[in-house]
């Protein structure tokens, strides 16, 4: 009796231990949120910098105590939007090719290539951008430098390809065969079937891929930092203007910032965090909707 009881107690203790391990994920999310928000909201609560100036300012000059991130928000949104505009169609069509048109061997090879593309660290995309894209942009640009919104968009468009391709491809492959057969039976061609039946059926999966792509684009730091120019002021008005996305602002100056300057970099992180949370919630909702249907 005693032995069984002891065994049982041991089992309960270890179950508790496993639970704690699993709970570390929750604790981490909470800790990240608390630490970033705590540090980021400090300057506004202690009134060392007005939040309105922070959110609407278009100049970031730590030397003269000007910290406005509005132009960064605009830059981030433009870059992400542009990347989605270019990257998503290419990615979805590639996914269509892999799952619908390519033979199984060719499809496998392309899938491997896409996975490899996903595995390349973002810094190397940046190096590629700096070595190839920026010089080409410079050739057609009226500006004196190639680092620009356009270069950022192109690099980000490449970077979201693997995410969107692989998720779209999975959800296209998951569309039941009967849908296609039904469509063929009605006399539709293969292409019509793909665009009128398969893609609409895979819509929510593709949307999830796109939103994850947005998340990747808006959160990308290192690749962007090498090709965006990082100006200290100015809302971008043309594709050839330099931009300074929220992420690079943090990464560029965190190393040496202190005082209010440092706290406002955390505030930049808070703004970024809020964007990301909105995106995460959207994904969550989409995934749930998919399960529901």
């Amino acid at each position: 009796m005693q032995a069984i009881k002891r065994k049982k107690r041991k089992e309960t203790i270890i179950e508790g231990f496993f639970l704690i391990c699993a709970f570390v994920a929750v604790i981490s999310v909470l800790a990240i949120t608390v630490f970033v928000f705590f540090n980021g909201l400090k300057p506004f609560i202690s009134n060392s910098y007005p939040i309105w100036d922070f959110l609407t300012g278009v100049e970031w000059r730590p030397g003269s105590n000007m910290y406005g991130i509005f132009y960064m928000i605009v830059g981030s949104i433009y870059a992400t939007f542009g990347a989605i505009l270019i990257g998503v169609p290419v990615a979805i069509l590639t996914a269509v090719y892999i799952s619908e048109l390519a033979g199984s061997r060719l499809g496998k090879m392309i899938r491997f290539a896409v996975e490899l593309l996903a595995g390349i660290p973002s810094v190397l995309y940046g190096v590629f951008g700096l070595g190839i894209i920026v010089p080409y942009v410079l050739k057609i640009s009226p500006m004196a430098q190639g680092e620009s919104l356009l270069a950022t968009i192109l690099v980000l468009a490449i970077m979201i390809l693997p995410t969107v391709v692989s998720i779209s491809e999975t959800s296209i492959s998951a569309v039941p065969k009967e849908y296609r057969e039904g469509s063929y039976a009605l006399g539709a061609s293969k292409i019509q079937t793909i665009f009128k039946v398969v893609l609409p059926a895979a819509r929510s999966g593709i949307m999830t891929g796109v939103i994850l792509g947005i998340g990747r684009a808006i959160g990308e730091t290192m690749a962007v930092m090498l090709v965006c120019g990082n100006p200290i002021a100015g809302i971008p008005t043309s594709l050839f203007d330099q931009i300074r996305p929220l992420t690079t602002n943090i990464a560029l100056e965190m190393g040496y910032a202190s005082g209010v300057h440092q706290e406002l970099l955390y505030s930049t992180g808070v703004v970024l965090f809020i964007f990301i949370m909105i995106i995460n919630l959207a994904v969550n909702k989409l995934v749930k909707a998919k399960v529901g249907s």
């Binding site: 981490s28 999310v29 970033v36 540090n39 943090i250 965190m254 965090f273 995106i279 994904v283």
Partner: peptide, 15 residues
């Protein structure tokens, strides 16, 4: 929480 962690960009982890 695990999903959130997967979605947070690495610069925020850095912060």
């Amino acid at each position: 929480a695990a999903e959130c962690l997967a979605g947070i960009p690495s610069i925020i982890f850095g912060l």
